[in-house]
Design a protein around this nucleic acid. Structure first.
Ligand SMILES: [Zn+2]
Ligand SMILES: [Zn+2]
Ligand SMILES: [Zn+2]
Ligand SMILES: [Zn+2]
Lengths: 148, 148
DNA sequence: TCTTAAATGAAAATCGTTTCTCTTTAGAAG
DNA sequence: CTTCTAAAGAGAAACGATTTTCATTTAAGA
Protein backbone atom coordinates (compact mmCIF):
# COMPACT_ATOMS: atom_id res chain seq x y z
CA UNK A 1 0.00 0.00 0.00
CA UNK A 2 2.73 2.39 1.00
CA UNK A 3 5.04 0.51 -1.33
CA UNK A 4 2.64 1.35 -4.09
CA UNK A 5 3.01 5.04 -3.38
CA UNK A 6 6.77 4.77 -2.99
CA UNK A 7 6.95 3.30 -6.46
CA UNK A 8 4.81 6.09 -7.81
CA UNK A 9 7.09 8.67 -6.27
CA UNK A 10 10.20 6.91 -7.49
CA UNK A 11 8.71 7.02 -10.96
CA UNK A 12 8.46 10.78 -10.65
CA UNK A 13 11.99 11.04 -9.25
CA UNK A 14 10.62 12.35 -6.00
CA UNK A 15 11.90 11.14 -2.65
CA UNK A 16 9.47 9.00 -0.72
CA UNK A 17 9.25 11.20 2.32
CA UNK A 18 6.76 10.57 5.13
CA UNK A 19 4.92 13.77 4.28
CA UNK A 20 4.46 12.80 0.67
CA UNK A 21 3.32 9.34 1.53
CA UNK A 22 0.87 10.74 4.04
CA UNK A 23 -0.55 13.16 1.51
CA UNK A 24 -0.95 10.40 -1.04
CA UNK A 25 -2.52 8.09 1.50
CA UNK A 26 -4.96 10.73 2.60
CA UNK A 27 -5.95 11.57 -0.95
CA UNK A 28 -6.35 7.92 -1.87
CA UNK A 29 -8.79 7.37 0.95
CA UNK A 30 -10.79 10.44 0.15
CA UNK A 31 -13.67 10.32 -2.30
CA UNK A 32 -13.95 14.09 -2.63
CA UNK A 33 -11.71 16.85 -3.81
CA UNK A 34 -9.73 18.51 -1.05
CA UNK A 35 -8.01 21.84 -0.53
CA UNK A 36 -4.38 22.20 0.54
CA UNK A 37 -5.51 23.83 3.77
CA UNK A 38 -7.73 20.87 4.60
CA UNK A 39 -5.00 18.38 3.92
CA UNK A 40 -2.73 20.39 6.13
CA UNK A 41 -5.27 20.48 8.97
CA UNK A 42 -5.80 16.76 8.84
CA UNK A 43 -2.12 15.96 8.78
CA UNK A 44 -1.01 18.27 11.52
CA UNK A 45 -1.53 15.92 14.47
CA UNK A 46 0.46 13.05 13.09
CA UNK A 47 4.16 13.87 12.62
CA UNK A 48 5.60 16.57 14.75
CA UNK A 49 4.24 18.99 12.22
CA UNK A 50 3.80 19.62 8.55
CA UNK A 51 4.08 23.00 6.95
CA UNK A 52 1.41 24.44 4.72
CA UNK A 53 3.98 25.32 2.04
CA UNK A 54 5.06 21.70 2.04
CA UNK A 55 1.51 20.66 1.31
CA UNK A 56 1.19 23.17 -1.51
CA UNK A 57 4.52 22.16 -3.00
CA UNK A 58 3.82 18.46 -2.90
CA UNK A 59 0.36 18.76 -4.32
CA UNK A 60 1.72 20.81 -7.16
CA UNK A 61 4.46 18.27 -7.86
CA UNK A 62 2.04 15.38 -7.76
CA UNK A 63 -0.32 17.17 -10.09
CA UNK A 64 2.52 18.01 -12.45
CA UNK A 65 3.44 14.33 -12.41
CA UNK A 66 -0.09 13.38 -13.30
CA UNK A 67 -0.69 11.45 -10.11
CA UNK A 68 -3.44 13.75 -8.93
CA UNK A 69 -5.81 16.11 -10.66
CA UNK A 70 -6.60 19.75 -10.14
CA UNK A 71 -10.21 20.68 -9.83
CA UNK A 72 -11.34 23.88 -11.52
CA UNK A 73 -13.62 25.35 -8.92
CA UNK A 74 -16.01 28.26 -9.37
CA UNK A 75 -14.53 29.90 -6.29
CA UNK A 76 -11.16 29.80 -7.99
CA UNK A 77 -9.38 28.12 -5.12
CA UNK A 78 -7.13 25.12 -5.44
CA UNK A 79 -8.52 21.63 -4.97
CA UNK A 80 -7.02 18.28 -5.76
CA UNK A 81 -8.36 14.83 -6.33
CA UNK A 82 -6.75 11.46 -6.71
CA UNK A 83 -8.55 9.35 -9.28
CA UNK A 84 -7.55 5.77 -9.84
CA UNK A 85 -9.13 5.61 -13.28
CA UNK A 86 -6.13 5.34 -15.57
CA UNK A 87 -7.99 6.03 -18.80
CA UNK A 88 -8.35 9.44 -20.35
CA UNK A 89 -11.48 10.89 -18.88
CA UNK A 90 -12.93 13.87 -17.07
CA UNK A 91 -15.02 14.67 -14.08
CA UNK A 92 -18.31 15.75 -12.73
CA UNK A 93 -17.83 17.58 -9.46
CA UNK A 94 -20.44 18.40 -6.89
CA UNK A 95 -19.99 21.96 -5.70
CA UNK A 96 -21.87 21.16 -2.51
CA UNK A 97 -20.49 17.91 -1.11
CA UNK A 98 -17.37 17.79 -3.29
CA UNK A 99 -17.97 14.31 -4.60
CA UNK A 100 -16.31 13.50 -7.90
CA UNK A 101 -17.65 11.20 -10.59
CA UNK A 102 -15.90 10.05 -13.69
CA UNK A 103 -17.27 11.13 -17.01
CA UNK A 104 -16.17 9.34 -20.13
CA UNK A 105 -16.61 11.65 -23.04
CA UNK A 106 -15.84 9.93 -26.28
CA UNK A 107 -15.35 13.06 -28.36
CA UNK A 108 -12.17 14.19 -26.68
CA UNK A 109 -9.59 12.95 -29.08
CA UNK A 110 -11.82 14.25 -31.83
CA UNK A 111 -11.85 17.56 -30.07
CA UNK A 112 -8.12 17.82 -30.01
CA UNK A 113 -7.92 16.76 -33.63
CA UNK A 114 -10.52 19.30 -34.63
CA UNK A 115 -8.61 22.04 -32.91
CA UNK A 116 -5.40 20.82 -34.43
CA UNK A 117 -6.86 20.85 -37.92
CA UNK A 118 -8.83 24.07 -37.68
CA UNK A 119 -6.49 26.21 -35.69
CA UNK A 120 -3.11 24.61 -36.14
CA UNK A 121 -0.57 25.39 -33.53
CA UNK A 122 -0.07 23.16 -30.58
CA UNK A 123 -2.57 21.87 -28.06
CA UNK A 124 -0.98 21.92 -24.63
CA UNK A 125 -3.89 20.87 -22.49
CA UNK A 126 -7.61 20.77 -22.37
CA UNK A 127 -10.19 21.09 -19.67
CA UNK A 128 -13.50 19.32 -19.57
CA UNK A 129 -15.43 19.46 -16.36
CA UNK A 130 -19.06 19.41 -15.40
CA UNK A 131 -20.03 21.28 -12.27
CA UNK A 132 -23.25 20.71 -10.44
CA UNK A 133 -25.02 19.06 -7.58
CA UNK A 134 -24.85 15.31 -7.24
CA UNK A 135 -28.09 13.46 -6.88
CA UNK A 136 -28.22 13.55 -3.12
CA UNK A 137 -27.24 17.19 -2.88
CA UNK A 138 -29.80 18.09 -5.53
CA UNK A 139 -32.49 16.23 -3.62
CA UNK A 140 -31.48 17.96 -0.41
CA UNK A 141 -31.57 21.31 -2.14
CA UNK A 142 -34.98 20.57 -3.61
CA UNK A 143 -36.22 19.42 -0.22
CA UNK A 144 -35.69 22.78 1.37
CA UNK A 145 -37.15 25.53 -0.79
CA UNK A 146 -34.79 27.14 -3.30
CA UNK A 147 -35.03 28.60 -6.76
CA UNK A 148 -37.65 26.86 -8.89
CA UNK B 1 -22.95 50.82 -31.63
CA UNK B 2 -23.28 52.25 -28.16
CA UNK B 3 -27.00 51.81 -28.48
CA UNK B 4 -26.34 48.14 -29.00
CA UNK B 5 -24.53 47.93 -25.70
CA UNK B 6 -27.12 50.00 -23.91
CA UNK B 7 -29.75 47.54 -25.01
CA UNK B 8 -27.64 44.66 -23.78
CA UNK B 9 -27.26 46.30 -20.39
CA UNK B 10 -30.93 47.12 -20.19
CA UNK B 11 -31.62 43.49 -20.83
CA UNK B 12 -29.54 42.63 -17.80
CA UNK B 13 -31.20 45.33 -15.73
CA UNK B 14 -27.91 47.13 -15.41
CA UNK B 15 -27.65 50.87 -15.79
CA UNK B 16 -25.91 52.01 -18.95
CA UNK B 17 -23.13 53.91 -17.26
CA UNK B 18 -20.19 55.36 -19.18
CA UNK B 19 -17.83 52.96 -17.47
CA UNK B 20 -19.82 49.93 -18.45
CA UNK B 21 -20.18 51.08 -22.00
CA UNK B 22 -16.46 51.74 -22.19
CA UNK B 23 -15.64 48.31 -20.86
CA UNK B 24 -17.97 46.69 -23.35
CA UNK B 25 -16.60 48.75 -26.19
CA UNK B 26 -13.05 47.90 -25.28
CA UNK B 27 -13.80 44.20 -25.04
CA UNK B 28 -15.68 44.20 -28.31
CA UNK B 29 -12.72 45.67 -30.13
CA UNK B 30 -10.28 43.24 -28.60
CA UNK B 31 -9.56 39.89 -30.20
CA UNK B 32 -7.79 38.47 -27.16
CA UNK B 33 -8.73 37.77 -23.60
CA UNK B 34 -7.93 40.57 -21.18
CA UNK B 35 -7.33 40.91 -17.47
CA UNK B 36 -9.21 43.38 -15.25
CA UNK B 37 -5.96 45.18 -14.54
CA UNK B 38 -5.30 45.65 -18.25
CA UNK B 39 -8.77 46.99 -18.87
CA UNK B 40 -8.29 49.35 -16.00
CA UNK B 41 -4.97 50.60 -17.36
CA UNK B 42 -6.39 51.25 -20.78
CA UNK B 43 -9.44 53.06 -19.50
CA UNK B 44 -7.71 55.32 -17.01
CA UNK B 45 -6.91 58.17 -19.35
CA UNK B 46 -10.42 58.65 -20.67
CA UNK B 47 -12.90 59.70 -17.97
CA UNK B 48 -11.56 61.45 -14.96
CA UNK B 49 -10.78 58.05 -13.56
CA UNK B 50 -12.09 54.57 -13.20
CA UNK B 51 -11.56 52.41 -10.16
CA UNK B 52 -10.15 48.94 -10.33
CA UNK B 53 -12.99 47.57 -8.18
CA UNK B 54 -15.42 49.02 -10.67
CA UNK B 55 -13.73 47.08 -13.43
CA UNK B 56 -13.81 43.88 -11.42
CA UNK B 57 -17.44 44.38 -10.45
CA UNK B 58 -18.61 45.12 -13.96
CA UNK B 59 -16.73 42.27 -15.54
CA UNK B 60 -18.26 39.91 -13.03
CA UNK B 61 -21.74 41.22 -13.69
CA UNK B 62 -21.31 40.99 -17.42
CA UNK B 63 -20.02 37.46 -17.13
CA UNK B 64 -22.89 36.52 -14.85
CA UNK B 65 -25.21 37.95 -17.47
CA UNK B 66 -23.60 35.83 -20.14
CA UNK B 67 -22.42 38.80 -22.16
CA UNK B 68 -18.77 37.97 -21.70
CA UNK B 69 -16.87 34.81 -20.93
CA UNK B 70 -14.37 33.95 -18.28
CA UNK B 71 -11.19 32.32 -19.41
CA UNK B 72 -9.81 29.52 -17.27
CA UNK B 73 -6.13 30.31 -17.26
CA UNK B 74 -3.30 28.09 -16.05
CA UNK B 75 -1.99 30.97 -13.96
CA UNK B 76 -5.35 31.10 -12.21
CA UNK B 77 -5.88 34.78 -12.78
CA UNK B 78 -9.04 36.30 -14.15
CA UNK B 79 -9.40 36.98 -17.83
CA UNK B 80 -12.43 37.87 -19.86
CA UNK B 81 -13.38 37.68 -23.48
CA UNK B 82 -16.30 38.98 -25.45
CA UNK B 83 -17.36 36.53 -28.13
CA UNK B 84 -20.05 37.45 -30.61
CA UNK B 85 -20.80 33.85 -31.52
CA UNK B 86 -24.27 33.34 -30.12
CA UNK B 87 -24.30 29.59 -30.44
CA UNK B 88 -23.31 27.19 -27.73
CA UNK B 89 -19.61 26.64 -28.17
CA UNK B 90 -16.25 26.72 -26.44
CA UNK B 91 -12.81 28.10 -26.95
CA UNK B 92 -9.26 27.47 -27.83
CA UNK B 93 -7.02 29.96 -26.09
CA UNK B 94 -3.43 30.73 -26.87
CA UNK B 95 -1.48 31.01 -23.63
CA UNK B 96 1.17 33.06 -25.39
CA UNK B 97 -0.58 35.75 -27.43
CA UNK B 98 -4.00 35.36 -25.84
CA UNK B 99 -5.87 34.90 -29.05
CA UNK B 100 -9.17 33.09 -28.78
CA UNK B 101 -10.71 30.80 -31.37
CA UNK B 102 -14.12 29.26 -31.35
CA UNK B 103 -14.40 25.52 -31.11
CA UNK B 104 -17.65 23.86 -31.97
CA UNK B 105 -17.82 20.58 -30.19
CA UNK B 106 -20.86 18.63 -31.20
CA UNK B 107 -20.90 16.31 -28.20
CA UNK B 108 -21.71 18.93 -25.65
CA UNK B 109 -25.38 18.47 -25.23
CA UNK B 110 -24.68 14.77 -25.23
CA UNK B 111 -22.19 15.36 -22.48
CA UNK B 112 -24.68 17.09 -20.28
CA UNK B 113 -27.25 14.42 -20.98
CA UNK B 114 -24.81 11.67 -20.21
CA UNK B 115 -23.95 13.24 -16.90
CA UNK B 116 -27.60 13.80 -16.20
CA UNK B 117 -28.42 10.19 -16.86
CA UNK B 118 -25.43 8.61 -15.20
CA UNK B 119 -25.03 10.78 -12.17
CA UNK B 120 -28.41 12.37 -11.74
CA UNK B 121 -28.49 15.56 -9.76
CA UNK B 122 -28.30 18.88 -11.42
CA UNK B 123 -25.76 20.17 -13.90
CA UNK B 124 -25.03 23.79 -13.09
CA UNK B 125 -22.30 24.52 -15.57
CA UNK B 126 -19.64 22.93 -17.64
CA UNK B 127 -16.23 23.89 -18.81
CA UNK B 128 -14.64 22.93 -22.08
CA UNK B 129 -11.52 24.72 -23.07
CA UNK B 130 -8.46 23.89 -25.07
CA UNK B 131 -5.23 25.59 -24.10
CA UNK B 132 -2.25 25.82 -26.34
CA UNK B 133 -0.25 27.87 -28.75
CA UNK B 134 -1.93 29.26 -31.81
CA UNK B 135 -0.29 28.58 -35.14
CA UNK B 136 1.85 31.69 -35.22
CA UNK B 137 2.96 31.35 -31.62
CA UNK B 138 3.79 27.69 -32.16
CA UNK B 139 5.84 28.57 -35.21
CA UNK B 140 7.64 31.28 -33.29
CA UNK B 141 8.36 28.87 -30.46
CA UNK B 142 9.65 26.27 -32.88
CA UNK B 143 11.77 28.89 -34.61
CA UNK B 144 13.81 29.60 -31.53
CA UNK B 145 15.01 26.41 -29.90
CA UNK B 146 12.77 25.01 -27.18
CA UNK B 147 11.88 21.61 -25.80
CA UNK B 148 12.06 18.94 -28.51
C1' DT C 1 -37.08 68.39 -11.74
C1' DC C 2 -37.11 65.06 -7.95
C1' DT C 3 -36.09 60.78 -5.85
C1' DT C 4 -33.86 56.72 -4.98
C1' DA C 5 -31.62 52.55 -5.76
C1' DA C 6 -27.67 51.54 -8.24
C1' DA C 7 -23.01 52.57 -9.28
C1' DT C 8 -18.50 54.36 -8.24
C1' DG C 9 -13.76 55.61 -6.21
C1' DA C 10 -10.29 55.48 -2.83
C1' DA C 11 -8.32 53.23 0.67
C1' DA C 12 -7.91 49.36 3.31
C1' DA C 13 -8.55 44.60 4.19
C1' DT C 14 -8.47 39.86 2.92
C1' DC C 15 -6.48 35.56 2.51
C1' DG C 16 -5.01 31.90 -0.47
C1' DT C 17 -0.62 31.08 -2.16
C1' DT C 18 4.36 31.68 -2.64
C1' DT C 19 8.96 32.97 -1.33
C1' DC C 20 12.93 33.02 1.76
C1' DT C 21 16.27 31.07 4.62
C1' DC C 22 17.97 27.98 7.57
C1' DT C 23 17.70 23.09 9.10
C1' DT C 24 16.71 18.27 8.37
C1' DT C 25 16.65 14.06 5.82
C1' DA C 26 16.24 10.43 2.07
C1' DG C 27 18.88 7.74 -0.45
C1' DA C 28 23.01 6.58 -2.89
C1' DA C 29 27.85 5.52 -2.42
C1' DG C 30 31.59 3.51 -0.06
C1' DC D 1 26.86 0.97 9.08
C1' DT D 2 28.89 5.76 8.11
C1' DT D 3 29.32 9.68 4.98
C1' DC D 4 27.77 12.92 1.75
C1' DT D 5 24.79 15.85 -0.89
C1' DA D 6 20.93 17.36 -3.23
C1' DA D 7 16.26 17.39 -2.16
C1' DA D 8 12.76 18.35 1.13
C1' DG D 9 10.75 20.66 5.01
C1' DA D 10 9.46 24.28 8.78
C1' DG D 11 8.34 28.69 10.10
C1' DA D 12 7.87 33.24 9.24
C1' DA D 13 7.26 36.71 6.22
C1' DA D 14 5.92 38.49 1.83
C1' DC D 15 2.87 38.80 -1.95
C1' DG D 16 -0.59 40.36 -4.78
C1' DA D 17 -4.84 39.59 -7.06
C1' DT D 18 -9.33 40.30 -5.62
C1' DT D 19 -12.83 42.03 -2.45
C1' DT D 20 -14.86 44.86 1.07
C1' DT D 21 -16.14 49.19 3.17
C1' DC D 22 -18.26 53.37 3.05
C1' DA D 23 -18.96 57.96 1.74
C1' DT D 24 -20.28 60.24 -2.67
C1' DT D 25 -22.17 60.48 -7.28
C1' DT D 26 -25.36 59.36 -10.92
C1' DA D 27 -28.77 56.98 -14.17
C1' DA D 28 -33.28 56.76 -15.07
C1' DG D 29 -38.15 56.49 -13.99
C1' DA D 30 -42.02 59.18 -11.96
ZN1 LIG E 1 -11.64 10.18 -12.59
ZN1 LIG F 1 -23.05 16.38 -3.81
ZN1 LIG G 1 -0.88 32.71 -29.99
ZN1 LIG H 1 -16.46 32.07 -29.00
Amino acid sequence: MNGQFSETLKGLKLKATPKRLAILRLLSQESTYVSPEEIWQRLRGRFGAIGLPTVYRNLEELAAGGVITKVIHPNRQLYYFLCSNRHHHHHFICVACRRVEDVDVCALNDLEREVDAKIGGRVLSHIVQVNGLCRSCAVAAAGSGEKQ
